[in-house]
Nucleic acid binder design. Sequence first.
DNA 1: AGTTCCCTGAGG
DNA 2: CCTCAGGGAACT
Length: 281
Amino acid sequence: MPELPEVETIRRQLQRSLGGGRIEELEVLRAGVVISAGGVTPASLAGAPLGRVRRRGKLLILEAGERILLLHLRMTGHPEVLRERRPGKHTHFILRGQDRRGKAFFLHFHDPRRFGRLWLLPAAGVEEIPPLCRVGRDALAVTPREFRALLSSCRGPLKPFLLDQGRVAGIGNIYADEILHRCGLHPLTPAASLGPERALILHGTMREVLRRAIQRGGSSVRDYVQATGERGSFQEEHSVYGRRGKPCPACATPVRRITLGGRGTHYCPSCQPKPRGGRKP
DNA sequence: AGTTCCCTGAGG
DNA sequence: CCTCAGGGAACT
C-alpha cells in the first residue's frame, strides 16, 4: 500500500512528466472519486498551468495555478502516466495535458478499491481545510526536537503513534513495523515512555528506513507499482512485515503477529521485548 | 480506544 | 465460497 516512500517515488515521476506543463482536460470517469470544492470544477481546470508536484505525508499536491489538486492513493490507488487515452476497468479519471516540452500526457488514475480521492481546491487557504489540515508534520521533515515533543505528549503505544497522520505523516502499516523492529522497540511500548535518547534513535531510524525505501522505489507487496509501472524492491529488505512465523533476520526467532488498533502488527519477540510492567510479549 | 464502513482482488 | 488486507473517517 502506498506509504511515504511509495508516494515520494510517484511524486518524483509525476514531477518529471507533468511539472511545468499544462492541463487540457480532466476527464472524470467515476464521480465520487473526484471531490470538487470552492468552485474548482473539472471543466475549470482546462488551460491551467502545472507547477511543482509536492508531497506531505501520503498526500500528493499538484500545483495548478490558483488551484491545487490533492491526490490520496489510499490502499490501491495507482497513477500511471501514459501517452494515450486507454481507460481500463478501474480507471476513475484521466488528466490530459502537455508536458513542459509540449508533448501530450495522459495521467490515468486506477483504483480497484475506489478508496483513493482527488480533491480540486482553490490554492488560497488550502492548508486550513481538509484533507491537508488533518496532516501533521511530514515524517522526513519533522525535527528531532518536534518528534520528541510529539512522542511525550502521546498517551498510547508507539505503533498507533507512528500510524497517526495527524502527528507524524507518511508512515503506514509496513514502515511502522519495520521501523520499530530496527529500533528494537515493541509496538506496545508506551510512546511517552521513551527518554530523549531512545526518541532520538527512533527518529533517526525512521528517517533511515524511509530514505532507504525511497532509494529502492518503495515496497511492492500486493498492488503497488510506480507511476512507470515498475515494481519497487524494498520488500526484499522487510524484516517483519508480512513475515509471520518466518525467522527474524537478526536472531532467527519466528516473527509474531498481533492485532493492534485493528491493524496487523509484526514484530520479533526477542529483538523487541515488551518493556516492564505488562505480561510477556 | 476499539469498531464499522467503504471496496475488490487475492488467497485459502 | 468465505475471509482477509487496510487508510482514514465516522461512529460507539
